[in-house]
Amino acid sequence: MKAIITCVVCPVSCPVEVEYHEHEILSIDRNQCKLALEYVRNEMFDPRRTVTTSVEVEGGAMPLVSVKTDRSIPKTQVAAAMKAICTVRVKPPVRTGDVIVANLLGTGANVVATRDVDPAATGAG
C-alpha cells in the first residue's frame, strides 16, 4: 500500500511517499531528512494530538478557563475527549496547571488549566 504524508516537523513540509504493509513501513521517499521517518511512522500507526479547549467557570471573572491535555492523546479519541470535557464545570479561583480532569478517558493525560481565572469581582468598583 502507498500513502503520501506531509511531514510537519519543520517548515520544509516534505510530501513523503510511504510504502507500507499492515503495521510496517517498507520504504519512504521524497523526505529531505531522517526526522520524517519517525513522524511518518507515528502519523500512520499511532497519530496523537494535544487537545486544547475551554471549560466553563461558574462565577469567574471570565466565563471560561482555557485548558489542554498535558500530553497528546490518540487522534481517534479526540472527539470523545471534547464530549467529556464539555460537561465539566469548575469554580474559581483556577490557577495555571490546576488539574481539571484527571486521566481523561483512561488515556493517562490530565486536562489542566492554561490560565488563571479569579472569582468575579463583587460590588461596584
Binding site: T50, T52, S66, T96, T114, D116
Partner: peptide
C-alpha cells in the same frame, strides 16, 4: 516547548 497562548502570555 509548545505552550498555549495564555501560558506564553502568563
Amino acid at each position: 516547548e509548545a505552550l498555549t497562548g495564555p501560558e506564553f502570555a502568563g
